[in-house]
Amino acid sequence: MRLQYPSGIRIICLPCTGKVDLLHLLHCFEKGADGVYVVGCLEGACQFNTGNLRARKRVALAQEILEKIGLGGDRVQMYNLSSSEAPRFVQIAEEMTQKILKLGPNPIKLARRKMAA
């Protein structure tokens, strides 16, 4: 289909979203990511049964922590889609990009620059 999606997104491939650790999510933000979203298989369709459900819980915990430390919990999201849903993939990418644009840049990135200056 060769669909276009926003260019600011860097894809990290994992065998299963069950591999996503809370620490991975936090480290993304510590290193300056403006937003992170985890895209898992449809719920009920995980090859490993519960990988995507575990990922959802970890994303929820990351949201809670980011909210409490003042970065904003909305910067991290969980989505589910199947591999045949390319238009949906694009839709999610655009939705997430819009959300992050609205939230503005990761304040950590700005703070780091300020401290370095």
């Binding site: 809370l22 620490l23 936090l26 480290h27 933000f29 510590e30 922590i65 409490k68 430390i69 003042g70 970065l71 304040p107 950590i108 703070a111 780091r112 401290m115």
Partner: peptide, 13 residues
């Protein structure tokens, strides 16, 4: 590790 990461971000922010 999780707490350290969160605290680093908090203080930096």
């Amino acid at each position: 590790a999780v707490l350290a990461s969160a605290l680093r971000m908090y203080f930096m922010n």
